[in-house]
Design a protein around this nucleic acid. Structure first.
Ligand SMILES: [Zn+2]
Ligand SMILES: [Zn+2]
Ligand SMILES: [Zn+2]
Ligand SMILES: [Zn+2]
Lengths: 144, 144
DNA sequence: GCCCCACCTGTTACACTATAACATAGCGAA
DNA sequence: TTCGCTATGTTATAGTGTAACAGGTGGGGC
């Protein structure tokens, strides 16, 4: 995953500096979403704690490269599960266990495109965040 | 619109108190999204400025009744354009002029439902916020 | 080699968004 | 009337994100 990021940045002629790389590592370590200030806390564990702006700048970079997504409904960030191709962000957020799945379903994107086009709207960045229950939480959460 | 809200609250046996009603008025006046602190400022124009928590409580109420939606990607609130039926929130947000359209397209919701079901995920609250350019901004924004 | 420019990072301070905890007030039903 | 629920007020604080400016780094052209 990290090496994939290296490759991608080299290809794009942008610099995955140590600091940006550390931020990406922290995000990827966590399997799930992580808040910006938790990233700051993790980075500050050994060394000196970076200022918020530093981490936000790294996050901006990583998002621009498509390596990280922002979850607007959680104010949190998550590593992209398949940074190979360009894609809008589609997420399934389990409110039981907090696990997050990245979808990127073409039919969803197509339906959004059609509906937007019908309104004369040109889509730039579709954002889909679905709250609900994942498979395991759904079964363990059997109705009384 | 306000009378529709009155009716809906009466039907549900919940109270659209003066304060909640004023918050709804401020949101509806603005055709578009409005931030919580701007609502506070507007409400404080004549009278004494309410505390943030008061407005947030009113917003929670209005959202629970389906009269207002929250736009997670903007940290802002908007009056529901068709509060009659229950619906997930689907929005088209123009980054040119800031105008916001509420979609609620059944095919989009269906596509999300299908994709989620394929992952074993039970949808509770689908959130769709599409950034792009509205019809008029798209034409006026002709490439150089 | 040297300079210049573009990019990256640090520092400080601040703006914006949202909630916790506890006290008070209104309102209707038993 | 009195109880209990809901709504509101008060105060303080937590959480999230940027502005503005200074300093550092590194590579390419001279
Ligand atoms: Zn992704
Ligand atoms: Zn779950
Ligand atoms: Zn609506
Ligand atoms: Zn527009």
């Amino acid at each position: 995953m990290l090496s994939e990021a290296e490759r991608r940045c080299a290809e794009r002629q942008v610099r995955l500096t140590p600091q940006r790389r550390r931020v990406l590592e922290v995000i990827a370590d966590r399997h799930g979403a992580i808040g910006a200030y938790e990233i700051i806390a993790r980075l500050g564990e050994g060394r000196s704690r970076p200022a918020p702006i530093s981490v936000y700048r790294a996050l901006d970079f990583l998002m621009a490269q498509g390596l990280v997504h922002r979850l607007a409904s959680l104010n949190a960030f998550i590593a992209c599960s398949g940074p190979d191709r360009a894609h809008g962000a589609q997420f399934l957020i389990c409110r039981g266990c907090g696990v997050i799945g990245e979808l990127n379903d073409a039919s969803v994107e197509a339906a959004i495109g059609r509906a937007a086009a019908a309104a004369g709207f040109a889509v730039a960045a579709p954002l889909v965040e679905v709250t609900g229950l994942c498979r395991s939480c759904r079964t363990s959460d059997a109705p009384a």
